[in-house]
């Protein structure tokens, strides 16, 4: 019994000679993927549970739940079929664990340290996994979706992503009008903030409401920006420094104008840049 186990184990730990290396970073509560080397190097995005699934979970009514309930994400991890993929795991706040049962992998993601594992998908298709280390209240809501595609499809996907990324590279010095920033802010809010602060901005339990919050309404933007960048409440409100300056400016502007917060204030990306260093 010990012998075959030893063989498998040694093979399992051998992460050398990978065709593609991806870094998976656990955040409370989403996964960040960075393509470190191999085809697609330089791509980076964040993968979050579809917010409608999260709302459905809260409602307690799952009679209309789709088959991929709690597994659907906005940006799946895309990898080519038949290639050895090395996954480097790390985390930003607490320990998470990157698990995809179909590939037989599970590797804890430890804040401040890197670990790795590998897999080679043999068939094209959608593979799902979930975070497997208790990481706080939304632990059940940080799924992993690995989309395995053929080599040409992968190349096409990489090209498309590169284009999109270039478009997203907004100039942080651009001065925005409130009306242009709000729709973007709403999206960022839905993807990142609504899980805790709720779509209506009212928070819940220990989660602070944003609707009517003094910090949000303040003419002085620095306090809110600092909280966005560094987190608050001992990490219960995590740091969002990984979002782009424009996204942060957009979401701050959105909270200042959504619900009953009709302040008319605009937060510009430049203000975020200025606060980042502090």
């Amino acid at each position: 019994m010990a012998l075959p186990a030893t063989k498998v184990l040694v093979a399992q730990k051998d992460t050398t000679n990978a065709d593609l290396t991806v870094k998976a970073t656990g955040y409370q509560w989403k996964w960040g993927y960075d393509y470190i080397s191999g085809e697609g190097e330089g791509l980076a995005f964040i993968s979050t549970l579809d917010s409608s699934h999260r709302q459905m979970s809260d409602s307690g009514d799952v009679s209309n739940a789709p088959v991929d309930y709690l597994l659907k994400v906005d940006n799946p991890l895309v990898v080519p079929v038949g290639k050895k993929v090395r996954v480097i795991t790390t985390a930003n706040d607490v320990i998470h664990s990157f698990m995809v049962p179909a590939f037989g992998i599970k590797q804890d993601a430890i804040p401040g340290f890197v670990r790795d594992t590998w897999f080679r998908a043999e068939k094209v298709g959608d593979y799902y996994g979930q975070c497997a280390e208790l990481c706080g209240k939304e632990h059940a809501y940080m799924p992993i979706h690995v989309k395995v595609v053929s080599a040409p499809e992968y190349t096409a996907w990489v090209a498309e992503q590169k284009k999109k990324a270039a478009a997203r590279q907004d100039d942080p010095n651009k001065v925005w009008a409130l009306a242009d920033l709000l729709p973007r802010g709403e999206k960022v809010y839905a993807a990142n903030c609504a899980a805790c602060h709720q779509a209506n901005g009212k928070g819940a339990g220990p989660i602070k409401p944003l609707d009517g919050s003094a910090i949000v309404l303040d003419e002085d933007h620095t306090k809110q920006i600092q909280i966005l960048l560094h987190g608050a409440a001992g990490g219960a409100m995590p740091s969002w420094a990984q979002l782009s300056d424009t996204d942060l400016a957009a979401v701050a502007s959105y909270t200042k104008n959504a619900w009953s917060n009709k302040t008319g204030q605009v937060v510009q990306p430049a203000e975020i840049v200025a606060q980042r260093g502090k």
Binding site: V62, M99, C131, A140
Partner: peptide, 13 residues
Amino acid sequence: LAGMPRRYADYPM
């Protein structure tokens, strides 16, 4: 064996 993680408040179908 089917991969349901522990300490989960909600789970896939």
